[in-house]
Design a protein around this nucleic acid. Sequence first.
DNA 1: AACTCGGGGCT
DNA 2: AGCCCAGAGTT
Length: 372
Amino acid sequence: MAKEPVQSKLSPSAIRRPLLRWFDREARDLPWRRTRDPYAIWISEIMLQQTRVQAAAPYYERFVRRFPTVVALARARLDSVLKLWEGLGYYCRARNLHKAAQEIVTRFGGQLPETRSELLSLPGIGAYTAGAISSIAFGQREPLVDGNVTRVLCRVFRVRGNPKEAVVQKKLWSLAEELLPAARPGDFNQALMELGSEICLPKNPPCEVCPLRRTCLAKRHGEQNRLPARRRKKPIPCHTVVVGVIERNGRVLIDKRPSDGLLGGLWEFPGGKKQSGESLEEALHREVLEEVGIRIRVGDSIATVDHAYSHFRIRLHAFRCTYASGTPQCLGCDAIKWVRPGDLRRYAFPAANKKIIRALLDARQAGRRGSQ
DNA sequence: AACTCGGGGCT
DNA sequence: AGCCCAGAGTT
């Protein structure tokens, strides 16, 4: 007995033809669509993981200009890769990219592998990215499912389960595979994502201009705003964080975060989470002593910054401090350094720290003007 | 299956 | 104040 198709109600060609025709007419002119270099396409796909096109585009341009080949990236220092990645988020992507480049040199002679399974063996390349590179860069008939494709398929085929569940995921991948044509698989995959990004929006999609308006089952049932099924999210905690810009002899102290974990490999000002019952100043004394082993004097506030991460948020208080006593040592970090404020730009900092740096340099500039 | 891991733009 | 984004890796 032959295996039954996952969804036989809609014929593949009823979706392929209008979708590809629409894509040929409406596809955005994106930087990574102007190249056929698998290396460049790989870079773009890593940058686009959980990241909007508009956010990734300028990073992509800078990155491929600075590191034009696999070999150039493999030879680069990780710190310079992180500096180029600064502000883009999910910094493990930069570490995996660097490591994968070195593996491509040693295992594949510097050429990106073409098969899905070989691509999957590289760090930072999962199911989606393996499908994207093999189909877009190498023209192979490999499906992909991302957030956009999930929304499109859940609506067109009226899939009502929670897309986070494994059984629903499996169904979506099966649908994507069945729809995929042998000709132009890369364009078809991009067309599905483009539709999710431009027409099949999360809320109030403009179905009347959608190329799939005649086949979409969600539209037929008026359920396009209820699919895909929403998952409830837990409330996220808010932490109070305090950091010190510690000055000594015209330099400030920064430390490098451990390479694994949150914001790994980036630099920051010493500090940490305030505990309940503790004042901001007490917390700062304690955290600085625990992290870099010195005693400080706490001065004026520089800035207070609210910042949201994926699964928690912080209110960050930054204080101007001066060194008091003790020898700086690397207790809860990978490295420490005294740097001139003007050299802070050379180091990769998290976004919340960048806001502090800006406030710091602005105040410094104002001080100079005032003294003249 | 549930967590961890950023940052920004839109509603 | 959530929601979502061309997801991957770990537990």
